[in-house]
Deep mutational scan, measured.
Amino acid sequence: RTVITEEFKVPDKMVGFIIGRGGEQISRIQAESGCKIQIASESSGIPERPCVLTGTPESIEQAKRLLGQIVDRCRN
């Protein structure tokens, strides 16, 4: 099985929602997708915060879908 790493950007102001209380939301996304997610600790003042996704191509797609759902929910 091929493990790859891909960068994905999330809106900086939504990082708190993505991580969740005590990290529970990000842990759930990682468990559900099987993908490791590392969010940069600093956005360096830019509106997007880079995340590094590591896993199989399928797990990365699943993680991006779950992250996208959270971002959409927070935008509305």
Rank of each mutant, 00 (worst) to 15 (best):
R1K: 14
R1A: 08
R1W: 04
R1M: 15
R1F: 10
T2E: 14
T2D: 09
T2L: 10
T2M: 12
T2Y: 09
T2W: 05
T2P: 07
V3R: 08
V3T: 07
V3L: 14
V3K: 14
V3N: 15
I4S: 05
I4Y: 14
I4N: 08
I4G: 05
I4C: 07
I4F: 07
I4W: 06
T5I: 03
T5E: 11
T5P: 02
T5S: 08
E6T: 10
E6V: 10
E6F: 04
E7I: 11
E7G: 08
E7C: 05
E7Y: 12
E7S: 13
F8D: 03
F8W: 12
F8Y: 13
K9Q: 14
K9Y: 06
K9E: 11
K9I: 07
K9H: 14
V10L: 12
V10H: 02
V10W: 02
V10M: 06
V10K: 00
P11R: 02
P11Q: 03
P11L: 03
P11Y: 02
D12M: 05
D12E: 10
D12C: 09
D12I: 06
D12Q: 05
K13D: 08
K13L: 04
K13N: 14
K13W: 05
M14R: 02
M14C: 09
M14P: 02
M14D: 06
M14S: 05
M14N: 07
M14T: 05
V15E: 04
V15F: 09
V15Y: 05
G16I: 04
G16V: 04
G16P: 12
G16K: 15
F17M: 14
F17D: 15
F17C: 08
I18W: 03
I18T: 03
I18P: 04
I18S: 03
I19G: 07
I19F: 09
I19Y: 05
I19E: 08
I19P: 03
G20Y: 01
G20S: 05
G20D: 07
G20N: 04
G20T: 03
G20R: 04
R21P: 15
R21A: 14
R21D: 09
R21N: 14
G22M: 06
G22V: 04
G22S: 08
G22Y: 04
G22H: 07
G23L: 04
G23N: 10
G23E: 12
G23Q: 11
G23H: 08
G23T: 07
G23R: 10
E24Q: 15
E24W: 15
E24S: 15
E24I: 12
E24R: 15
E24N: 15
Q25N: 11
I26E: 02
I26L: 13
I26C: 03
S27C: 05
S27G: 14
S27A: 12
S27V: 07
S27N: 15
S27P: 03
S27R: 15
R28I: 04
R28F: 03
R28G: 05
R28K: 11
I29C: 04
I29E: 01
I29T: 03
I29F: 03
Q30V: 05
Q30T: 06
Q30R: 10
Q30A: 10
Q30P: 01
Q30K: 04
A31G: 10
A31F: 06
A31W: 04
E32V: 09
E32W: 05
E32G: 03
E32S: 07
E32R: 11
S33A: 05
S33Q: 01
S33H: 01
S33E: 01
S33C: 08
S33M: 01
S33T: 09
G34I: 01
G34P: 01
G34M: 06
G34H: 05
G34K: 12
G34N: 11
C35M: 00
C35K: 01
C35A: 12
C35T: 04
C35D: 01
K36C: 06
K36D: 14
K36E: 13
I37Q: 01
I37C: 03
I37N: 01
Q38N: 08
Q38D: 07
Q38A: 11
Q38G: 07
Q38H: 10
Q38S: 10
Q38L: 09
Q38M: 07
Q38V: 14
Q38F: 07
Q38E: 13
I39H: 02
I39D: 01
I39P: 02
I39G: 02
I39A: 02
I39S: 02
A40I: 12
A40C: 13
A40E: 15
S41P: 12
S41K: 15
S41D: 10
S41G: 13
E42N: 11
E42L: 08
E42K: 11
S43E: 10
S43H: 06
S43C: 15
S43R: 08
S44T: 13
S44D: 14
S44N: 10
S44P: 10
S44K: 14
G45I: 05
G45T: 08
G45W: 05
G45M: 07
G45L: 06
G45V: 08
G45D: 13
I46T: 15
I46F: 13
I46H: 15
I46S: 13
P47S: 15
P47M: 09
P47A: 12
P47Q: 09
P47N: 08
P47E: 12
E48Y: 10
E48L: 09
E48Q: 06
E48F: 07
R49H: 09
R49P: 04
R49W: 03
R49F: 04
R49C: 07
R49A: 04
P50N: 14
P50F: 06
P50Y: 06
P50E: 13
P50R: 10
C51E: 00
C51Q: 01
C51I: 08
C51R: 00
C51H: 02
V52F: 06
V52N: 05
V52I: 12
V52E: 09
V52R: 09
V52S: 14
L53R: 00
T54M: 08
T54K: 12
T54E: 09
G55W: 00
G55C: 00
G55Q: 00
G55K: 00
G55P: 00
T56G: 03
T56M: 04
T56N: 07
T56Q: 06
P57I: 05
P57E: 11
P57H: 07
P57L: 06
E58D: 10
E58P: 06
E58M: 06
E58V: 06
E58K: 15
E58Y: 05
E58T: 14
E58F: 06
S59Q: 13
S59Y: 01
S59P: 00
S59C: 05
S59E: 11
S59L: 00
S59G: 09
S59N: 13
I60Q: 00
I60D: 00
I60S: 00
I60M: 02
I60V: 12
I60E: 00
I60L: 06
E61R: 11
E61I: 07
Q62R: 11
Q62L: 11
Q62W: 07
Q62V: 14
Q62F: 11
Q62N: 11
A63H: 00
A63M: 02
A63N: 00
K64Y: 01
K64E: 02
K64N: 01
K64Q: 04
K64P: 00
K64T: 03
R65V: 14
R65H: 07
R65Y: 11
R65I: 15
L66R: 10
L66I: 10
L66M: 11
L67Q: 00
L67I: 05
L67H: 00
L67A: 00
L67R: 00
G68I: 07
G68P: 01
G68E: 12
G68K: 12
G68W: 09
Q69C: 08
Q69L: 10
Q69A: 14
Q69D: 15
Q69H: 15
Q69F: 04
Q69W: 03
I70T: 15
I70S: 10
I70P: 02
I70M: 13
V71Y: 11
D72Q: 08
D72Y: 06
D72W: 06
D72N: 05
D72I: 03
D72A: 10
R73W: 08
R73D: 15
R73A: 12
R73N: 15
R73Q: 12
R73P: 14
C74A: 15
R75S: 13
R75A: 15
R75N: 06
R75H: 14
R75P: 13
N76G: 15
N76V: 12
N76K: 04
N76W: 07
